[in-house]
Every structure is written in C-alpha cells, then in structure tokens.
C-alpha cells in the first residue's frame, strides 16, 4: 500500500453514470480517499454514514472526501440516496479495482477494495495512509489527526531551493 511521501497516483472515475471526478479537480485542497469494500455491506455502511454525519469536521480543514469502491455508478447512486451520503463516491469498476491496485489496497482474494484511508495534501502527495482490518470500522479520528498535522506543516515556512535538508 502507498505510504506517506509517495505521490498520489492520478485517476478519474465515474461518480454518477454520466459524470467523472478526479482528485486533481480538488488540487489546492487536501483530499481524503476512503476505499471501502462494498456498498450496502454493514461495516462499510456504518463507516460511510459516520463520515457523512461528521463531514463538517472535514470541511473545517478545507478537505474533500471521496469514497471509492468497486461497485458500479448506479449502485453507488442508490446507496448514497438511501443513506443520504453527503460526499461523492467513485466507482472503481472498469477496469475493476484498477485505482485500488495502483494505491496498493486491492484485495484480490475478495475481489474488492481493502478498507484503506489516504490523506493527500494540497500538492498531491500522500501525507497519511492506513489500512483497517476488513471487519473494523476505523472511524474518522486518524483522518482528522492527519489533517490537523497538514495544517501545522503548511504554517511552517516552506523549504527553499538551496536550503540544507
């Protein structure tokens, strides 16, 4: 799985049957990628419902949350409508799990994305990542702590070319 310091691979996936979204659309904002196994499964549903409920906590950090699973866009749409989810879900459907594989969090044995979280900073670099066991809902505390950390980093002077590391 991709670790902090790595560049977040670029991609574009369907968010509805006729719209695509890409993390680069949000460049300049931190992006939180929440890979999950499947729409409708109990742990995923609770995890996504909690994120939806506390979305203002993420917005307070200026962050954009994107949920990603292998289900098709129509399935995502029905899932989001049923639970009134307040953030976009991306469909890693064709080629199946292609983006999950590039992030190193595809569970080939199950044929689903693993329950992986990534916080990507404003410059497109992974700042934090975490793979939760399949049956465990990780909650949002790790994401929020990572976003807190970004705030502290960006308030420091940026290293200039020629500075000693």
């Amino acid at each position: 799985m991709l670790q902090p310091g790595a560049r977040a691979p670029e991609f574009a996936l369907k968010t509805t049957p006729d719209q695509t979204l890409a993390p680069v659309d949000f460049r300049g904002k931190p992006v939180v990628l929440a890979f999950y196994q499947a729409d409708w499964s109990p742990v995923c549903t609770e995890q996504m419902a909690v994120y939806s409920l506390i979305i203002d906590e993420l917005r307070a950090h200026g962050a954009q949350l994107l949920g990603i699973a292998c289900d098709g866009a129509w399935c995502h749409l029905a899932f989001a409508r049923h639970y009134e989810l307040s953030f976009p879900r991306l469909s890693d459907f064709e080629p199946k799990g292609g983006v999950s594989r590039r992030y190193g969090c595809y569970d080939a044995a199950e044929g689903m994305s693993g329950r992986a979280l990534f916080v990507v900073d404003c410059d497109g670099q992974i700042a934090w990542s975490y793979l939760s066991p399949t049956g465990i809902n990780p909650g949002a505390d790790g994401i929020l702590a990572a976003l807190d950390g970004l705030g502290k980093l960006s308030s420091r002077p940026r290293p200039q070319e020629g500075d000693r590391p």
Binding site: E46, V50, E57, G139, A140, D141
Partner: peptide
Amino acid sequence: DLHSGAISGVVGTPT
C-alpha cells in the same frame, strides 16, 4: 459532543 466523537473515532451508535 459530535466533534468529540469524530476526533475520538466513533464508528456509529453506540460506540
């Protein structure tokens, strides 16, 4: 309380 739940890693109710 909701903020406390978010930063503490609440995973749904009850946690």
